[in-house]
């Protein structure tokens, strides 16, 4: 028996919105410690790594480890049927063909059940080596989303250059070029508005706008985003999910031919 309950479906709704552009299907691995998803996009350029800890749920029970293949499009449609304040419960038997989503309104007067067929998927896991990153930047997630959106108008790629002075995003295309520089905030009262740079050595990397613009769909999950970069390794773009876990996106850089 697997059962996981969240007091408000809003978190799960936001998680689905944050992955649906990149993934069509994904395996949800459920164990005593929580729910994990690791999946690459079809082009093998980016990877989504989602971790929801069991202690972050209002109720969590997982008698046997389960790997449930889910269609992300269908799951997104089902989650859109829930109000943000509804309680959501995921339920499956030990060797499931289906998973049930149960939405209960706050006043308990409305109870909705949606059953979704699971799909058989080959489980492909990637070994991600422990990496000490040259630059780790924490910045407001809305600012990052804004910069990705703005610079996407100028080219297909954004170059991120990070040094002690700050972080610079730039894009160039047929119509011109653009760059946005953010300095490290000196003494931000509000943690959420801070730009913090932890730099061992400067880095300069180029990434496809298309993927960055998919990652920033996670913006509603967290006020801050963490970008970890080293020369010639994938970018890690991380959003905390309240007290329950995190979503990390890995993105292979564009390299000079």
């Amino acid at each position: 028996m697997f059962e996981a309950r969240l007091a408000q479906s809003a978190i799960l709704k936001k998680v689905l919105e944050a992955v649906k552009d990149l993934l069509t299907e994904a395996t949800f691995e459920c164990s005593d410690s929580g729910i994990q998803v690791q999946a690459m996009d079809n082009a093998h350029v980016s990877l989504v790594s989602l971790n929801l800890r069991s202690d972050g749920f209002d109720k969590y029970r997982c008698d046997r480890n389960l790997s449930m293949g889910m269609n992300i499009g269908t799951m997104t449609k089902i989650l859109r049927c829930a109000s943000s304040e509804d309680t959501v419960t995921l339920r499956a038997v030990d060797s499931p063909d289906n998973i049930i989503f149960i939405f209960e309104s706050q006043n308990k007067e409305k109870l909705a059940e949606y059953e979704m067929k699971l799909i058989n998927m080959d489980l492909e896991h990637l070994g991600i080596p422990e990496t000490m990153y040259s630059c780790v930047v924490k910045m407001p997630s809305q600012e990052f989303a804004r910069i990705c959106r703005d610079l996407s108008q100028f080219g297909e790629a954004i170059t991120i250059a990070c040094s002690k002075e700050g972080i610079k995003f730039s894009a160039a295309g047929d119509y011109g070029n653009a760059n946005v520089k953010l300095a490290q905030t000196a003494d931000s009262d509000k943690e959420e508005e801070a730009v913090l740079i932890d730099m061992q050595e400067p880095v300069k990397l180029t990434f496809a706008c298309r993927y960055l613009n998919s990652f920033v769909k996670a913006t509603p999950l967290c006020a801050q985003v963490k970008l970890s970069m080293s020369s010639d390794v994938p970018l890690v773009c991380e959003y905390q999910i309240g007290e329950i876990g995190h979503i990390r996106y890995y993105l292979a850089p564009k390299i000079d031919d």
Binding site: V45, S46, P129, A208, A252, K254
Partner: peptide
């Protein structure tokens, strides 16, 4: 123009 690298260049399947 820079070309898009594959994630599998960095991470291995396990």
């Amino acid at each position: 123009t820079p070309i898009q690298n594959d994630l599998l260049e960095y991470f291995s399947l396990i």
